[in-house]
Structure formats: C-alpha cells, structure tokens
Design a protein around this nucleic acid. Structure first.
Lengths: 230, 230
DNA sequence: AAGTTTCTGTGTCAAATATACACGGAATTG
DNA sequence: CAATTCCGTGTATATTTGACACAGAAACTT
C-alpha cells in the first residue's frame, strides 16, 4: 500500500485511489485486437486485465494513461480518448479504486509490448477471443469498443491503426473489423475519395492478386481532420 | 489497471478527493438555462460554480450526483448522463480534486432550488448570460453542453425539459435552444410524427393565437425509446 | 508458358433521407 | 369586427445512401 491518505479530506468523503485503464486497440493479420496484461499479484492473480496505472501526484489522468502506454508498448503520441469513469465502491475487492478508461489506437507491428512490474504476460487478443477479465474490465472493454464504433462513424480513425503504407482494401478491413459489419467496396471507396489526407503512392502491394495500389496518409491533414470532428 | 500502487510507478500515487459536478439544464420562458450556485466559502468565494459534491465512502459517482440534485432541487429520477472526468493537478487551488461531470435535465417550474450548506445563492442562468465560473467549471459547462447537443441529435431528450403538457411549437423551441439553430416547423413536425410516445390531448393552449393543441408523453414509451438510443 | 483463379478497381441507377418552401384557419388583440 | 399573429399542413427538389456487375492485374496451377 501507499502512504497515508490526505488528512484534509472531510470525514464523509471517500479517499479513493484513482487509476487510468487503457483499452489499446491494434489491427494485425486482418483482425482487430486488444492488448491485455496478466496479473502476477493478488487480487485477480493470473487474470487478464486492461493495462493501467495509478495517477501520480503531479499527473492528470491522460498523462497517466500515456505513461502506462509508454512503459508498455514504448510509444508516444498516439490517439487517446477518454471513455468513462467507473466508481462502484466494490469494483476493487481490496480498497476503493476509481478508474477512468481510455481507448488508444496503435500499430502493433511497430511496437513490441513488454510485461513489466507486477505483470506476468502481455498479449494481443483478437476481440472475439478475449477471456473474461478481472475486476469490471470486461465492462470497460465493451464500453470502450462501443465508443470506438461511435467515433469511427464520424471520424477517420482507421488510419491510426494501419501501417505507413496500406491498400484501400486493408483500410476497409479495419472499418469492417471495428464496426463488425461488411461494407460495400465501391461505396467505401467513394467515401474515402472525400478525404484529402489520402495520398496514392507509385508502389503496389506485391504478393496479392490484382496488384493493389499502396496509399499513405498526409499526417498533418489527417490530424486536422480529426481535430475538426472532435 | 488496479494494481499495487508502488511497484513500478516511481512517482507517488495521488490521494485525491473525488467530486461529482452537475450541469443541470432547464427550459423556462423560451430559454435554455443552467442551474448555478454561488460559493459562500473559499476558494472562489462569491463565484458562481456548478453544483457538486464529494463522493462518499459507499457511493458511486452517479449516486453522488443524484444526491446533490436531490438536495438542491429536490428531485429524483431525472435524466442523468456522465460527461467526462477532469484531473488537472492544479484545477483546485487548495488540494487535489478530481471531478466527474454529469449533465441532468429537469423541469424548472416543478422544483424550487434551495441554497444549502456552503452556498449563498442558487439561480437559473440563461446559457447566454452565464458569467465566468470558478474552478474550471466554464470548461465543464461547455463540454456538457456540447455533449447534450450531440445526444439530442440522436435521442428525444427535449421532453425531459418540457412540462407535462406542451405544444409542438414549445418542443421545437427546446430543440432550437439546445442546438442553437432554427428549425423548419414542418420538417420538425414530420420528425415528431415518427415518435410513438407523443400523445395528442383534447386540450388546447389558451392565451396563444391559433389555439395550439397540447401534447403529453407516454412515459414508458419515452423511457423505452431513450433506452434504445443509449 | 498458358490457362485458371482470385483479388482489384470502377460507374450507374434506385431508394431513402434531408431540405426548401406557402397558404388557409384559429385565437387573440385592439 | 378587423387586423394581427401564430398554428397546422403537403409537395417538390436536392442530397445521401445503398445495391449491384464486369474487365484487368497479379498470383497460382499444372
């Protein structure tokens, strides 16, 4: 346990630890995946849970989330969105812990996650293979996924999950995986044509029939677009 | 994640008070209003702020918010939605306070707010006349309003702000006030016709030219509708 | 290397949805 | 009782969304 709690807190109000938990989405091998960690300590020893950490004295929660992600996958500056705050008094079996959840989008192929501290394992799980999680993290995951779906309908988020070069079919795959529904190829491409941040390269993807053209994003324009739809 | 506090975090974890702040929207005299309270204690003595309270030992934050609203406007069971959590270390000048904001919809004419505890005053402010608020509450208010606009576009929330009997023009007024834009009367009514929870009464509004018909809502059907669009 | 398979890339038409718009009737006002 | 103001209604147009088929490119098979 940590040191004594702030004594200035009034008798009646609760002094809770506050943590930030991250729902880290990645796209690999045609599947939407989520990064889970396995606990090496009680409570929920051996259980898979969302990566997270306690808010430090001088941090805001978003910084906590970014610190956790930096330690875990070694990446800065990724797309991070607050989802919700969970405060049921008994959601942690030992003491009072309030958690704010974030979802993050990363490119799995660029970062090797490492299990640090009280974790025994880190793994990418296809969304369909996620086991029941410790604490109330199954709920957090479901809520974050729902939020991601909602956001994807109005914001071009898929490109934060794709590698630097990608085909339009691959982009469509990301959309379909997140939304959980099939899309019409031609209608999908019509939508993408309205995005000014998509740049057609001279290259083609080799090893795939049809020889699809590779695209990349104009990073600044994509950022601007995401800014607009906040 | 809810792990041990001191294993790999080099910084001390923070023991923060956690509060729930409420952005209480009401509609009166053709205007969208928000309920603000005036502080009778430091810090921000004399400043207008959002009503809020500290989370108690056995409460979850939503219960804190409902308790605050019960004390303030004496009403239970109103529409309440979590908006976001604010955790900047210096957002409270004296000690660390993390706040989760909620927006609530109430019928101002049915409830007389009372200033309790450390408050000197309570007042409904038209949204356009809200002064700069204490703490970061101007931000909280703006965020909550933005969220309300977003929600109103997909959910029939306006009827939680209207009195028991209302005309369709009054309903349109609520939409226009929240969205901040004018709507076409005929198109608006066409949309309302798709709602099965609207019930036309035999009464007409007196004192208004044209003698508009009064409507009421089928409460269960409205609840069901709101449930669906969550 | 020739034929086969599979994936890419493209345009049009129909349906649904959203937007613009005007006038007669009812109740109040003076 | 005349004038004013607000209520209540339908249609036509534009925009958006959704369905759908075939030719070309690269890989695969033999």
């Amino acid at each position: 346990m940590d040191g004594p709690l702030d004594t200035r807190v009034t008798v009646r109000s609760a002094a809770a630890t506050h943590t930030a938990d991250c729902v880290v989405f990645g796209y690999a091998e045609g599947e939407l995946r989520v990064l889970l960690v396995r606990r090496a300590v009680e409570p929920f020893l051996g259980h898979w849970v969302l990566p997270g950490g306690a808010m430090a004295e001088t941090e805001r929660l978003e910084e906590t989330a970014r610190r956790v992600l930096l330690e875990l996958v070694g990446v800065r500056n990724l797309y991070l969105q607050q989802v919700a705050t969970y405060s049921a008094p008994d959601r942690h079996p030992v003491r009072r812990v309030v958690t704010t959840s974030y979802y993050a989008l990363v490119r799995p192929e660029q970062h090797q996650p490492t299990a640090l501290g009280y974790l025994s394992e880190v793994r990418w799980f296809p969304l369909s293979e996620v086991p029941p999680l410790g604490f109330d993290h199954s709920t957090l995951l479901a809520d974050a996924h729902a939020r991601l779906i909602l956001h994807l309908r109005t914001r071009p988020l898929a490109f934060d999950l794709l590698p630097e070069r990608f085909t339009l079919t691959e982009a469509q795959g990301v959309y379909e995986e997140i939304l959980g529904e099939g899309l019409d190829r031609r209608n999908f491409r019509r939508k993408l044509q309205t995005y000014d941040f998509l740049i057609e390269t001279e290259e083609k993807r080799r090893g795939v029939r049809g020889g699809p053209v590779l695209y990349r994003v104009h990073v600044d324009r994509l950022r601007a677009q995401l800014q607009k739809n906040t």
